[in-house]
């Protein structure tokens, strides 16, 4: 009985919480919150969180972490911006500045973790600062703007009343969901997160998988950097400061175990949406953004406590 409850909680609990929060806000503020316009806004605002959270998810899944995602957003944004301003074709600028550079920055994290054997917390704490420094140097600490209209419309525009950032975020989530559930790579990452030693003795190349995990996180943050640049219409060298908190919070609220080996992409997307809904709701209810930080901090602690309670009963 208890077992069954725990199982269904793990599977559907997050949806229940989401619906509860939406219902509560709907009752508190039916005239503003439950409008198509506002809900679209919530999803749009969540898109960047969901993008970086999906990458962060993999690093937490292997019992690690990636603190550098916020800095990767800024650096990829600035490089993409520079490429665009210098006349590089839009698609090429996105591919190089966002995806390639993002992947490279992630690879640097992964290589450092593999070579030093240090916990990813230390490595990405370091690269968080290094990447931010590089961003400030190459941008001279000034925002870059003046992008072609096709960039803004192509990345931050709308298709059939759906914001393109949302489509991008959902596509990335879908691909990563496929990787986690249908590929050997995905299974291996769960195995590595559950027990790295057992994974190694079962024939899984740990270093290669760790590298891939950080590359995924870097690419996701790189895509987020491009999306953010397009939405703002400028590449801000101080973009993404503190975003690692949102990414980690989404993953954890979405049921990813901080101890590694457990979690789903669907959960992470829901986690990102919950954060978006709460922030939006608090805005509508005229709660100061300062309080929002307190709410999010409490949510992180509550989510991990729940995870610990449920897994401890085993």
């Amino acid at each position: 009985m208890v077992n069954r409850f725990r199982e269904s909680w793990q599977k559907f609990g997050i949806f229940g919480i989401f619906i509860l929060i939406v219902a509560a806000l709907g009752i508190l503020s039916p005239e503003y919150f439950l409008t198509t316009n506002n809900l679209t806004q919530v999803v749009l605002q969540s898109a960047i969180t969901i993008l970086i959270a999906c990458g962060e998810f993999f690093t937490i899944l292997i019992a690690g972490i990636d603190l550098s995602v916020g800095s990767v957003i800024a650096l990829t944004g600035v490089i993409t911006g520079k490429l665009l301003v210098s006349g590089t074709p839009v698609v090429l600028a996105i591919l190089i500045g966002g995806i390639l550079v993002g992947g490279l920055l992630g690879a640097v994290n992964g290589i450092l973790v593999n070579k030093t054997g240090l916990h990813p917390f230390i490595i990405t704490l370091g690269t968080m600062s290094i990447y931010r420094g590089i961003t400030l140097i190459i941008s001279d600490a000034k925002p870059i703007f003046g992008f072609p209209q096709s960039f803004k419309e192509g990345v931050a525009g709308w298709i059939f009343h759906i914001p393109i950032p949302v489509i991008i975020a959902l596509t990335v989530a879908l691909i990563l969901h496929f990787i986690t559930t249908k590929t050997i790579l995905g299974r291996n990452i769960y195995a590595l997160g559950g027990n790295a030693q057992s994974a190694w003795f079962s024939g899984i190349d740990i270093k290669k998988h760790q590298l891939i995990v950080f590359i995924i996180s870097g690419i996701c943050a790189g895509i987020a950097g491009v999306v953010m640049t397009a939405r703002l219409g400028a590449a801000e060298p101080l973009a993404g400061v503190g975003f690692e908190t949102f990414a980690i919070a989404s993953a954890i609220i979405g049921g990813t175990s901080f101890f590694g080996g457990k979690g789903t992409i669907i959960g992470v997307v829901m986690g990102g949406l919950i954060i978006g809904v709460i922030n939006n709701g608090l805005n509508i209810l005229n709660v100061s953004t300062y309080y929002q930080q307190i709410v999010m901090g409490s949510l992180i602690i509550a989510a991990v406590t729940l995870d610990k309670l449920f897994s401890a009963k085993k």
Binding site: K182, T183, I184, N188, S202
Partner: peptide, 17 residues
Amino acid sequence: ISSLVRKSKWGGIWGFV
């Protein structure tokens, strides 16, 4: 887990479950 490793390609990362 190990039979997946055995049938995987590209040094253990490519293949489907």
